[in-house]
């Protein structure tokens, strides 16, 4: 464990807490893409299959349970909670994310560390996470004005993977046989997708203005 990875995990946890706060406090999920939430639930379920077979640390197990639990709770809330689902931007959240799932699964069958079921699913979860934010970014551009909590949620979600890239660089230089090129390349793509969001987020912070994404 290094400071970049711990900070990355805490940033990821913070993004989830901000999203839960938004949904719980405002009883609204406007501006939040249900498709991105569903993709993230799938990412965690596919990646944390070894939750009960490979014990790595208490921290690792607890965080996995938190990520799986919170992502499923958010999907459930946006689908079933009568107050919350009324505020869901159904007509804006139309990105066909099933193509992302199919594409990532095919890629995982072709490019993986070992052609074994757990490894293919792990690679699938890595690729899927890299593109899972696309429906959310598309929704933000379509809905124009972004409320603060939603903006902070997306910012934290993007920042955590950027911190993981620093973690991979650190581990590459400090651990002899470290190679996570699949996670690294996917992480770079994932972070690059946030580039223009980070730019407008920084502008809104600098000018102390409302976050506006050009539609």
């Amino acid at each position: 464990m290094n400071v970049f990875r711990l900070t990355g995990d805490m940033t990821h946890l913070a993004s989830i807490l901000v999203l839960l706060l938004k949904i719980y406090a405002t009883k609204s999920c406007s501006g939040i893409s249900l498709k991105t939430q569903e993709l993230y639930a799938l990412v965690f379920l596919a990646r944390y299959l070894n939750l009960f077979t490979d014990f790595i640390s208490v921290y690792n197990t607890v965080m996995k349970l938190v990520f799986i639990g919170s992502s499923l709770a958010i999907v459930w809330c946006m689908r079933m909670h009568k107050m919350v689902k009324r505020s869901y931007d159904q007509e804006l959240d139309t990105f066909r994310h099933y193509f992302l799932i199919a594409g990532c699964f095919l890629l995982a069958l072709l490019v993986n560390e070992k052609f074994m079921f757990p490894e293919v699913l792990w690679a699938f979860s890595i690729y899927l996470e890299a593109v899972s934010t696309i429906p959310q970014l598309v929704l933000l551009q379509r809905s124009g004005n972004v409320d603060n909590l939603t903006g902070q949620y997306v910012f934290l979600l993007g920042a955590y993977r950027a911190l993981y890239i620093l973690n991979w660089i650190y581990r590459y230089f400090t651990e002899p046989h470290f190679s996570r090129w699949i996670a690294c390349v996917a992480g770079l793509v994932q972070t690059a997708l946030y580039a223009d969001f980070f730019y407008y987020y920084f502008l809104s912070w600098k000018n102390n203005a409302k976050l506006q994404l050009p539609s």
Binding site: R5, D9, H12, R47, N50, D54, I56, N60, M63, K64, F67, E113, K114, E119, W122, Y164, N167, R180, A183
Partner: peptide
Amino acid sequence: LLEREHHDEL
């Protein structure tokens, strides 16, 4: 013995 690639990261 090939140490199985442990995915120790989240």
